[in-house]
Structure formats: structure tokens, C-alpha cells
């Protein structure tokens, strides 16, 4: 039997998990906000100086203003889009890279291709991430993509390793062996019978990379290696490190709380996804 469960059983399990549903709802809400920012319906005045320094919350500035007199609410909303841009880009790219390399490596286990992929993942995993990011930022000084490059370069390795293990496991299963035995070309077997069965890994892993990317952006922006021109929760938090010392908490809260809720939503969703998709767990 292929490792993927019938879709309706997965849905049943997902629906029964209330925390997971709440997480999914939360993430969808953020997705809608990100979309409306991207379509130009909200958060467009994030860089406009529209008030005095450190105004408190009012009907005009819902969360007050920052050091420069910019509207904190607008900045917090716009940051949702930035977070999703970074998260989606990094998650998709590293999932793609990881699944391709992992599949090749697992399918051709114990050949030079496998050795090569395993060696590269080993090397990349051996360099502490933030230093790697610093090195990439150093090498690509002019580029605004240094952060994303560093993230993809380090995050794909986990996906690759997981896919490799799963492909190696699936390769020895009867349904794959029989597909090969009746003469289907190997690349078709890989594409049609093996890769679809790694879907549950890819989905959960992509969501985890998304979360990691958002969290990492915060630290990198704080360290000055992150978002270069624009605004993000990380930049807002970096700004706020000085402001909180003089009792200006608006900027901090406006970044910290949305960030916390989004990550919480994602973590709940990932847990539910993993529970529902894990073919090893029975329904009992």
C-alpha cells in the first residue's frame, strides 16, 4: 500500500483537531491580509511620515506612531506581506531544491550522485546558520537577496534528507518493485509512484521552512543582515529595542503580537498536519 492515506481520512482527522483548525484559520486570515496588501488595498502608507514622533494610539493612528512619526499600524500590516513573501519564496524554493536533490539521492542510493548530495548537505549543515548568513551577506554585499539565498541554501538540506530517506524506503516497497518489474522506465516510476508518496513530508516540511524563514528574518533584520529597504516585523523589533528603554512599547507590541500569533497558528497547523498525514499512525 502506498504511504498516503485516503484523502477523506486525512480530512476527517484534520477536522477533528480543533487546535489545528484554529491554527489553519489564523494562518488563512494572515494570508488574506498579505493578499490585500499585495493587491494594494491596505497598508500602503507604511513609509509615509504622517504624524509626530511617538504619538499614542488614536483613531487616526490605530497603534500610534514610531520614532519618525510613521504609522505603526500601516507598518505592521505591510509587514504581513513581507513575511509571506519571504516565507513563500524560501519555502517553495527550498522544498523544490530539497525534493529534487533528495529524490535523486535516494533513488540512486550508493552512487556518486547520492554521495555528492549527502556531502553537500553535510557541509551546509556544519556551518552555523547566522554565520553562514553573515558570510553570504558579505559575499553578495550589493544584493537585497542575500538573506533569502542564505535561507534557501541552509533550509533545503533537511527536506532533502527526509525525502532521501523516504524515497529509499519506498523504493524497496512491493508496488515500486513491481512497477519496475513490469518494465516501466525508472524515471516514470519515480515521478508517478514514489514522489507523490512523499507529499506528506513535503507539505509539513514546507510549512516548517515557512515558519523558520519568518523567525530567521526577525533575527537577521535585527543583526542588520535582513530586509534592506522596506519594513518587516524584524525591523520594527530592531527599532523598538531602543524605544522600549524609554517606555515606548507600541512598535514592539505591534510587531511582537502579530508575529507570535502567526507563528502559533503555523505551529498548531503543522502539528495537526503531521498527525493527520503520518501514515504510520492508525486511526485508533
Amino acid at each position: 500500500m502506498p504511504g498516503f492515506e485516503p484523502t477523506h481520512r486525512v480530512w476527517q482527522k484534520l477536522r477533528a483537531n480543533r487546535a489545528g483548525l484554529a491554527g489553519f484559520a489564523l494562518v488563512s486570515l494572515y494570508g488574506l491580509i498579505a493578499l490585500s496588501v499585495a493587491l494594494g488595498w491596505a497598508g500602503q502608507e507604511w513609509s509615509l511620515v504622517s504624524g509626530e514622533r511617538w504619538e499614542s494610539a488614536s483613531s487616526e493612528h490605530w497603534f500610534g506612531t514610531n520614532q519618525l512619526g510613521q504609522d505603526i499600524f500601516q507598518r505592521a500590516i505591510y509587514s504581513v506581506r513581507i513575511a509571506f513573501e519571504i516565507g513563500l519564496l524560501v519555502a517553495l524554493t527550498s522544498t523544490l531544491l530539497g525534493s529534487v536533490c533528495g529524490a535523486i539521492s535516494g533513488w540512486c542510493a550508493d552512487t556518486w550522485a547520492d554521495d555528492g548530495v549527502v556531502f553537500i548537505t553535510g557541509v551546509l549543515d556544519s556551518i552555523p546558520f547566522y554565520l553562514f548568513a553573515a558570510a553570504v551577506a558579505f559575499a553578495f554585499q550589493a544584493s537585497a537577496w542575500a538573506m533569502q539565498i542564505a535561507m534557501v541554501a541552509t533550509f533545503w538540506t533537511t527536506t532533502s534528507r527526509l525525502v532521501r530517506a523516504e524515497v529509499m524506503r519506498l523504493k524497496n516497497r512491493d508496488f515500486v518493485q513491481s512497477a519496475l518489474a513490469i518494465g516501466l522506465p525508472p524515471h516514470l516510476v519515480l515521478l508517478r509512484h514514489v514522489l507523490p508518496n512523499t507529499g506528506h513530508i513535503l507539505l509539513a516540511q514546507a510549512a516548517m521552512v515557512f515558519v523558520a524563514a519568518i523567525k530567521t528574518e526577525v533575527i537577521l533584520s535585527f543583526l542588520g543582515l535582513g530586509v534592506q529597504d522596506g519594513v518587516s516585523w524584524g525591523l520594527m523589533l530592531a527599532e523598538s529595542t531602543q524605544e522600549v528603554l524609554v517606555s515606548q512599547f507600541n512598535n514592539h507590541l505591534a510587531a511582537a503580537i502579530p508575529l507570535l500569533l502567526l507563528l502559533l497558528g503555523f505551529n498548531l497547523m503543522i502539528d495537526a498536519l503531521q498527525d493527520a498525514l503520518d501514515p504510520r499512525q492508525g486511526s485508533a
Partner: peptide, 14 residues
């Protein structure tokens, strides 16, 4: 612990 993992380092430190 899931909540703890959802809080950014930076927020905890601040």
C-alpha cells in the same frame, strides 16, 4: 512549549 517556540528570540530578550 508550542507557544514558547512561536515566540521570537528577540521578543523574549526584549
Amino acid at each position: 512549549s508550542a507557544t514558547g517556540m512561536s515566540i521570537s528570540f528577540l521578543i523574549i530578550v526584549i
